[in-house]
Computed example of a mutant assay.
Amino acid sequence: MPHIIIEYTDNIKSEADISNLLKKINHVFTTRSHLFPIGGVRSRAIELHDYCVADGTQDDAFVHVTVKIGAGRSVEDKKETCDTLFEVIKDHFFDLYTKRYLALSLELVEFSEAGTYKHNNIHKRFKKS
């Protein structure tokens, strides 16, 4: 953990540079390895083809980022991480935001470890000997 899911409308695909955004997002978490083990960071994007924004009369767009983490981090750490992440997202879309109608949002979902199952050998690569 964390798992980061970006949902974005297909009407911004050509300008959104989603691959680069994924790398920027991962960087936010991998530079906080004391909070989020690097081997558990996963980000992905889902391009949406079926959606309706506002009243549906314009070519409006949105990007919604969901961050899923296990419980156990302080309120301050979660806030600092999400504040930083949202600034990265806003900065990434700055030019596009100035040219068109675009809604950006971020949601943090925290859940109990009792509700997750994991089998991951990637962590070994990042453990200090």
Results as ranks from 00 to 15, higher is better:
V28C: 15
I25P: 01
R44P: 00
E7W: 06
G72T: 11
I5C: 00
C82F: 08
D95G: 03
K128G: 01
F93H: 05
N11A: 12
R32E: 13
D59V: 04
P37S: 06
G70E: 00
R125V: 00
H27S: 08
T9S: 14
S19M: 01
V63C: 03
F126E: 01
D55E: 14
R44G: 06
V41P: 03
H34T: 08
I89E: 04
D55I: 02
L108E: 05
L108C: 06
D60W: 14
A71I: 06
I5L: 14
H92T: 11
I38D: 09
H34F: 06
H49P: 00
D95Y: 09
E87G: 03
I18D: 01
H27F: 03
D50R: 14
K79D: 08
L102I: 04
I89M: 07
K68V: 09
S74N: 09
I6L: 13
N120F: 12
N121C: 03
L104N: 07
H119F: 12
G39P: 02
L104W: 10
Y51R: 12
F36E: 04
S43Y: 00
I122S: 08
K78G: 00
L106M: 13
A71H: 13
N20K: 11
H123C: 06
I25Y: 01
E80W: 01
